[in-house]
Write a protein that binds this DNA or RNA. Structure first.
Lengths: 295, 295
DNA sequence: AAATTATTAAAACAAATGGATCATTGTTTT
DNA sequence: AAAACAATGATCCATTTGTTTTAATAATTT
């Protein structure tokens, strides 16, 4: 944790040149960095047995404009520690020839990367495998995701359709998307993808599926998502990004993992299905490695 | 991280019984617990887009005497986490109950996370901003991505259509997808997404666009992709994953970054466009926070 | 020892914070 | 349709906050 904390280094460097009171304040800050972020300046002064004004002076000695800058620094440290890569981030920021644009891009990508890494925790991993098992056991899978979540739903359906014929994408023109549910039976399941703001149609169809006795499995963004209550299994993925929009990238990663696990659960037939698809597409000359020659 | 946090559980338990505003506040607290400890109540309210008083009310609803008790609770959590931090890291590797399934998932997620993190290097960042600038300068953007790349193309188009009307998705039934190019003009550009194996139709349309004088911008997987040669700007993203399938998650991340940069380049009108979209969808009752009551 | 400087404590201040009140709005019930 | 209710937003208040100023004290130099 302590390695490569520039402020800490600076405090140590200037420590000997400080007055007695400043040293006492600095010492407390060094030994309890997180308290700086957690309590008020006066409270901190009380804890360090120092006058409030001393903290302000310490800030100035260290080249800050005011005490709040010290606090902001340590608050940031606490935040960074949350997403693992704390040390790396600060290093990078220095070296990057940062335009405002590339800064935004950098922030976003870093954040998304961390959010996906967070899915490697035991808990989400367990949810993933459990959901994959449930999907594998189902006779048919209805896939539902509207608006922005369409991305994820479509991807899942596309890959599943390469693997076999158990997937039905609930999507269609003129509001016909839900029609496939008409003949849904209880030994089938629905995979719903929805993040805030939740599309009404999604919620309606999910509830309908549940009422029909289907198991609802969902990929959503929060324990308090309306989907959480009606789902047999739920996978939560972060959607915050440093931009106007929510990110669906972690959700797409989840979908990819689910597809892989499903294929993995029946490796032989997955291989067979993919081979068939390959052959089919090869016949149609769907793919190529070179630009087409003009004719 | 999240397991065994009694307050968190309690918030989730009472969530459904809360009013809309309380839910919004509670949701933010759930998703950013450390912020509660790090910023003032008013600041937090601002972040959660809620009135300051709502935070006080949330505290009371949860059985606290006042807001400060919530803050104290989360401050304590941050302190606790600090202690257990080093220890946990060491434990992690040991305790993981690794089934073969969860191992695969773990590998995949870790890999994808790293691939996205790799985009934070100066070179890809520069490509991203350059491409965003070029997109911003274009009169119109034709978006093309078939088969698996459809995911990325669709996402880009969807977000762009929220931002304005400069985007045309080259997709349609019965092979009509390319028709929109009929009236394409040289001051327009084409954004192509394609990874190996490259769909022939994609290559044909990209070449056609280039012949018509459009600038081709591409998101692809390699310097030796057929798209690389005909593109004015190219962004390369990894697609390897520990599975049968290639991953499109990094490509989606790229798309999200591009959209954000584009919005950022003309912040005021982006905000306006998003506001208009919001209003429109609100009128149509597109979104909801709760499950629909059966009628 | 006197003069000067640097350090500290105390007091004063404006800005912000958390909390309470009340009018208004939107919903449900009658 | 009216009445009752809960939810929300706006305003106000007493505290607390970070900072500055002033006065007192200690340390240093001459």
């Amino acid at each position: 944790m302590s390695q490569s904390d520039p402020l800490r280094e600076q405090i140590i460097a200037r420590f000997d040149a400080m007055s007695a009171q400043l040293q006492q304040a600095a010492r407390y800050v060094l030994e309890h960095p997180e308290e700086v972020a957690l309590v008020s300046m006066r409270e901190l002064a009380r804890l360090a047995a120092v006058q409030p004004a001393t903290m302000t002076r310490l800030a100035k000695v260290l080249g800050f404009q005011g005490y709040n800058e010290i606090r902001a620094y340590y608050a940031e440290t606490v935040r960074k520690r949350n997403d693992g890569f704390a040390a790396k981030v600060r290093q990078r920021d220095v070296e990057t020839t940062s335009t405002p644009e590339s800064d935004i891009a950098h922030h976003m990508l870093h954040g998304i990367s961390a959010q996906i890494a967070a899915l490697c925790e035991p808990e989400p991993l367990q949810c993933l495998t459990a959901m994959a098992d449930r999907l594998a056991a189902a006779k048919k899978v209805y896939v539902l995701g509207l608006r922005s979540s369409h991305v994820v739903a479509w991807h899942f359906h596309y890959v599943m359709s390469l693997l076999g014929e158990r997937s039905v994408h609930l999507d269609g023109p003129a509001g016909t998307g839900g029609d496939a549910l008409i003949r849904a039976k209880p030994d089938e399941v629905m995979l719903v993808v929805s993040i805030k703001p939740y599309a009404v149609d999604t919620l309606v169809l999910a509830q309908l599926a549940k009422d029909k006795g289907l198991a609802v499995l969902s990929i959503t963004d929060s324990e308090v998502s309306p989907l959480a209550g009606i789902s047999e299994h739920t996978i939560y993925c972060a959607t915050d990004s440093y931009s106007f929009f929510h990110t669906l990238t972690p959700a797409l990663a989840v979908s990819e993992v689910l597809c892989t696990l499903l294929a993995e659960l029946d490796r032989p037939s997955a291989l067979k299905a993919l081979q068939d698809a390959d052959d089919h597409l090869a016949h149609l000359n769907t793919y190529s490695n070179t630009l087409p020659r003009r004719v």
